[in-house]
Design a protein around this nucleic acid. Structure first.
Lengths: 131, 131
DNA sequence: CATTTGTTATACAACTAATATAACAAATTT
DNA sequence: AAATTTGTTATATTAGTTGTATAACAAATG
């Protein structure tokens, strides 16, 4: 797992960690059952505070993506354990809406946006080789 | 334009205003050339501070969606004036990525996400009747 | 000329983000 | 069994964001 923090970004550090963890899992670089690095070691690697990483892990747990075993470590949940409840689907749709709306208003066609989505998909799904 | 603020939301008020304005334009409820309500009147309508609405308007201007004429008012830019530059396309893709990645990790299939995207599209594009 | 407009400035309270340090108790490793 | 590592909890500080409040200004509008 290579996480790269942009300290000048307007996206909070803990949010950057969360997103890149999710992308790593989507890419298959990390699999269900794998343990995440300890909050201290990852924080040291990234050059950030332990609490910042801890916040990210708890965000991942709240999303149902990992399980934190107190005093032990964090484990990536199995795909089955991740429910994809109707409520989660609604949330994804809610997240999607403003992005799509902005694209449309800026003049993107449905085809352009679908194309972008497929590009993102290809970029995330098990990269064939090379990367 | 009907804007509904959720004061308990974790999405900032100015961001809610921005998003709903964009959705209103996407839906065709507001057209290029139309003037937005004055920051004071909209603020009064929503029960928020003038500066909060002002911040939203400047965000819309930064996105290239409206033009603010100092001491006069804000006008929705024409679709042509809205460039859709390669940089804007990249930005949309960048916004799309974490949403799609999260969906995937939670177990959504490409089909499910595409379906959601089409649903959002249908919800935004000139709603046939009713509404 | 009076009103409305966005602009600018200042101030304040509440909250978030991030860091820093420390101590604790359970889990793991040696 | 002892040492180390782990997530947890607590406290404190700094900086920035969010939102409100009030006020004055000058240009645009009626």
């Amino acid at each position: 797992m290579f996480i790269q923090i942009e300290f000048q970004s307007d996206v909070p550090i803990y949010e950057q960690v969360t997103r890149q963890m999710i992308e790593g899992i989507a890419r298959g670089e990390m699999k269900p059952g794998d343990t995440l690095p300890s909050v201290r070691s990852l924080a040291a690697d990234l050059g950030v505070n332990m609490h910042t990483v801890n916040k990210s892990y708890h965000e991942l747990e709240a999303k149902g993506i990992i399980t934190i075993r107190p005093k032990s470590g964090a484990i990536i949940s199995s795909a089955e354990a991740r429910a994809l409840s109707p409520e989660q689907l609604r949330q994804i749709e809610k997240n999607l809406k403003p992005v799509v709306a902005e694209g449309m208003v800026l003049g993107a066609t449905a085809e352009q946006i679908e194309h972008m989505m497929k590009k993102v998909f290809a970029d995330l799904q098990i990269p064939a080789e090379g990367v």
